[in-house]
Design a protein around this nucleic acid. Structure first.
Lengths: 246, 246
DNA sequence: CGCGTTTCTCAGGAAAATCACAGATCCGCG
DNA sequence: CGCGGATCTGTGATTTTCCTGAGAAACGCG
C-alpha cells in the first residue's frame, strides 16, 4: 500500500496500514546511524544490531519486513547469520552490504531469492531505492504499488531504469538517474546541494560540491532541452523539480 | 491458469486461483534453503523435508502439487521414498535431484511417467523451468498456459527449446538458451550481473562475473545480428531485453 | 579414443562515465 | 549600473565498465 503525504512524498506502508519495519545489522556505529536516519526519514521503523547474535534476537522480537545485513560481522560470518535469520524470517528479503572488492567472488545465490545487495561505500538513495524494491516485490507492501515516479510529463521507472519526457525516451547515466530519482521523489521541494550530495553520492565522497551543479547541468540538457524547464534553481538554497507550467 | 502481475511477470496458479504448492526434499539445508527462496519468489508455497520419513509425512499433510526429491537421502534410498510418496500422491509429478555421475542408469526409467530430473549442481533457472513444465503438463495448473515466451518478434519455446526471431530459427547452446530465457521472463527489467549469475549459472560456479558479459556478447551475435538490438546494456546496472523500437 | 562443440579464463582495447578545473555567465543588491 | 558571489558549462584527464578475440579445458558423441 502506498499513501501520499500532504507534502507529496509517497511512502510504503504494510497492508494493514502500519509502517514498514527494517532491521539494520552492521558493526560500525557510523553506518547503522547513517542508515537509521535515512530510513526513519522514509517513515519506516528501524531496529539496529551490531552482530550476528543481536541480529537473530532482534529478528525474533522485532519481526522486521526486511533486513539490511553487513556480510562482514565480528562474531560470525555473513552466511551463518543469514541462515539463522532465514530460520526466523523465512519470507523476508535481505539487502546485503558488501565490500566493493569482495563482491565478485562469492555473492553466490544471494540474489536468487529476490534478495539484493549494494557495495560499500553506498549512497543512501541507492540503499533506499533497493529496499523499496525488495519490500515492493516481497508483498510486504501492497503489490500494486508500482515502480514508476511521475512528475508532470516526466516519468522514471525504477525497474527498467527508463526515463521519458512527453513520451520520448531519455538515456541517463547511473549518477544522473539517481539524482533525478531523488529530485522526483521530492517534487516541488527545494533540496540543498548538501542534501543532494549526502543522498546521491556515496558517504565517503571527498570531492567538491561542484559536482552537483555539474550533474544538474547534465540533467537539464537531457530533461529540459528545448522544452519548458522543470528543474529550477533557488539561488542560495538549492534546486527543485516540478511540473512545467505551474 | 496464469495471471500477469503489474510488472509483467507471469505466475502459475492452480485452477481455483490458489498458489501452487511444492514440497522440497533434500538433506542439505543449504540446498533446501536456496530452493525455498527461489521457488517462493516464483509465488509458490513451499514446504521442506530433510529425509524420507519427513517427506512422506509432509506429503500427507501438505498435499503438494509437485515434489522436488533428492535421490540421496540419509534414512532410506530414493526409490523407497518415491514409492511411498506415490502412494500418498498418485498423480503428482516429481523432479529428481541427482549427483552428476550417478545419473543415467535408473533415473532414465523413472522419468517415463512424466517426471523429470536435474543433476547437481543445478542452476535455479533450470529447476524453475522444469518445475513449471511439470506443473503445466500435470494439469495442476491450467493446461492452456503455454510454453512460449514472446518479446517483440523474438520467441522462445521452453518445451522444444526452439528460438526464433522474425520467423528465422536460431540455434543456441544450453547456456545461451537459459540466459535468454531468464531475460525474456523479465522483459523490460534491468537484471544485474549478480542476479543473472545467481540464476543462470549453477550454485557452485566459482568463476568471474565476466562470463555474463561474454554470453551476452554471444547472444547479441545470434539474436541482434544485423537487426535492431533488443538486448541493452545499462552501464553500472545490468542488462535488459525489450522489443525493438520502443 | 579422437573430434567437434561448448564453456570459460585471460587480457587488451574501446567506450562511457565521472570528476576537477577554470573561465563564462547570471543574479541580487547597493 | 557595477560588483561579488553563486551558478553554469566546456575541456580534458582519470577511472570504471564493458566488449571481444584467442586459446585452454571440459564435455558429448560416435
Amino acid at each position: 500500500m502506498t499513501t501520499t503525504t500532504p507534502k507529496g512524498r509517497t511512502e510504503l506502508l504494510r497492508p494493514d496500514g502500519s509502517p514498514v519495519r527494517v532491521l539494520v545489522v552492521d558493526d560500525e556505529p557510523s553506518i547503522t546511524e547513517l542508515l537509521s536516519m535515512a530510513l526513519r526519514y522514509e517513515g519506516w521503523q528501524i531496529r539496529t544490531a551490531a552482530d550476528g547474535r543481536g541480529a537473530v534476537q532482534a529478528a525474533r522480537e522485532f519481526r522486521p519486513d526486511t533486513v539490511v545485513l553487513d556480510m562482514m560481522l565480528p562474531d560470525m560470518d555473513g552466511l551463518s547469520v543469514l541462515g539463522r535469520l532465514r530460520r526466523e524470517l523465512p519470507d523476508v528479503p535481505v539487502l546485503f552490504l558488501t565490500a566493493k572488492d569482495a563482491v565478485e567472488d562469492r555473492i553466490a545465490g544471494l540474489t536468487a531469492g529476490g534478495d539484493d545487495y549494494v557495495t560499500k561505500p553506498f549512497s543512501l538513495e541507492e540503499v533506499v531505492a533497493r529496499l523499496r524494491g525488495l519490500i515492493r516485490r516481497s508483498g510486504a507492501a501492497d503489490r500494486r504499488s508500482d515502480s514508476v515516479l511521475v512528475v508532470g510529463d516526466l516519468t522514471l521507472d525504477e525497474d527498467s531504469h527508463e526515463v521519458t519526457r512527453g513520451g520520448e525516451s531519455i538515456h541517463l547515466t547511473a549518477t544522473e538517474f539517481e539524482l533525478l530519482r531523488f529530485l522526483m521523489r521530492n517534487p516541488r521541494r527545494v533540496l540543498s546541494k548538501a542534501q543532494i550530495l549526502d543522498r546521491v553520492w556515496s558517504y565517503d565522497f571527498g570531492g567538491k560540491a561542484n559536482v552537483v551543479e555539474l550533474y544538474i547541468s547534465y540533467l537539464r540538457r537531457k530533461i529540459d532541452a528545448g522544452r519548458e524547464p522543470m528543474i529550477h534553481t533557488r539561488r542560495g538554497a538549492g534546486y527543485l523539480i516540478k511540473p512545467a507550467s505551474s
